[in-house]
Amino acid sequence: MIDLTTTTAFTGLPLTIGRVTLTAFDPGPVTSVAPYPGRDLSRALAPLAFPQPGAISEAAGLRLVWAGRDLAFLMGGPAPDLTGLAATTDQTDGWAWLTLAGRDAVAVLARLCPLDLRAAAFPPGRSARSLVGHMQAIVIRTGPEAFELAVFRSMAGSLLHDLTGAMRGVAARRAL
């Protein structure tokens, strides 16, 4: 099989405005895992575990990120054989990923996303499905001031546009 070169869906990144930086990143192969009703995936997925809502299971360079009701995204490597246990679909080229990090990351994201972003409600190591602007998104908190965001790849330009506007707004308030 020909190994194609991955290119980012974003143009103009990395981008720093004020105290926040946007960076495109390549999560590696991404596969959605949707277990069939009543099946036990624990042996097939070990050492990973199918995540509870909002959780992330991490092992051996792979991440299994909760991504919806009875749905998780396996990121960072190929999926194990789950024939008969779960529906798996390659999502690698379906989503555009970026990191939003910096001291005002929460303030920027709060302008676009209705999630409760306080550390008590959404601590590092948690994932959520929510909205960013008008887009359905996956939001993963990787640190107190760092997030990974993913939207459908066709919406990468809109995400960048919305985030850039929010970053400019937060930076402008800082400059007052």
Binding site: P53, P114, R129, S130
Partner: peptide
């Protein structure tokens, strides 16, 4: 029941 309390905009 899955995600906890969320804003009206998500529904």
């Amino acid at each position: 029941p899955c995600c906890g309390p969320r804003d009206r905009r998500e529904f």
